[in-house]
Design a protein around this nucleic acid. Structure first.
Length: 277
DNA sequence: ATGGTGGTTAGACCA
């Protein structure tokens, strides 16, 4: 049975209702992980998303900033919000999705952007980002090795490979592509705990279908007259799959056509398909 | 070297 999971930083779910509806209609996605919903739970557009085909919703939002959600056509269970670093700032929700013989664990994650100055001594936002990535380490390593088939999806705000940015040279000191962040993200992917590699680490779903020497992006700044012509993008949004689920991964792609829709988010959705038993 | 745009929300803050 195919199960489709997508991740999308919508930059305000209320401003993107039409786009979410259209994406749901055109891709028949089963589980949609959102980031930057920018709305408190009591004001979340529950009805609109139900009508879009997602009656099951796990939401964790706050006023004005951040906010994550998991929208699903299938029932959700064991919904949890992770208050990383004690901040409770609505960056991580996860749930179990009913799918085939056994449930799929799905995470919607929004890593701090980190501000502009790549010196963590001078820039507390970047220090927070690095601490956040460190804090995720043991949590993600445990899930990499778990028997539960698991997907980690979200805006990780890091472009780890040289081909994940439009210019590796020019972005070397630009936050999202600095060496320290790239190293931390690669460490998270390797999922090496104290006892060695945990379950072989995470599979980068998109890179199973796009060769590592080929550029691929999921975000393009609003500050470009013609984003596609300039194509100064970065791959900030990721879908990671643990070893228990990796054999079921059958497809992944970036829906960059969505960036061309009217009043778009600056991020495009990433979608992955699994053939679950 | 600088500013360019967008969302939230009412003057900045964040991306």
């Amino acid at each position: 049975m195919p199960v489709t999971v997508a991740t999308w930083n919508v930059n305000s779910v209320r401003k993107r209702l039409d786009q979410v509806r259209r994406f749901a209609r055109e891709t028949a996605v089963d589980v949609l992980c959102l980031q930057e919903t920018k709305v408190t739970n009591d004001l979340f557009p529950v009805e609109a998303m139900t009508e879009a085909g997602f009656p099951y919703q796990a939401i964790a939002g706050m006023k004005g900033y951040n906010g994550v959600a998991i929208l699903s056509r299938r029932p959700l269970a064991e919904v949890r919000v992770e208050p990383w670093l004690g901040r409770d700032d609505c960056r991580h929700v996860h749930a179990r999705v009913a799918a085939g013989a056994r449930p799929l664990e799905v995470h919607s994650l929004y890593v701090p952007a980190g501000g502009d100055d790549p010196d963590p001594e001078a820039n507390p936002k970047f220090a927070h980002k690095l601490a956040f990535l460190d804090a995720l380490g043991p949590f993600l390593a445990a899930r990499a090795a778990a028997d539960v088939p698991t997907v980690v999806a979200g805006d990780l705000n890091v472009a780890p490979l040289e081909t994940d940015v439009w210019s590796h040279e020019r972005l070397n000191r630009v936050i999202t592509h600095t060496p320290v962040e790239r190293d931390k993200l690669k460490d998270l992917m390797a999922a090496e705990g104290a006892g060695g590699p945990a379950g072989g680490g995470w599979t980068d779903a998109l890179r199973r279908f796009v060769p590592a020497d080929e550029k691929v992006f999921t975000w393009w700044s609003y500050r470009a007259a013609d984003w596609r012509a300039a194509d100064r993008g970065r791959r900030l949004d990721h879908i990671w799959v643990n070893a228990a689920l990796a054999p079921a991964l059958s497809f992944a792609a970036v829906h960059d056509e969505v960036r061309d829709w009217p009043e778009p988010s600056d991020h495009a959705p990433v979608r992955a398909v699994f053939e679950v038993p």
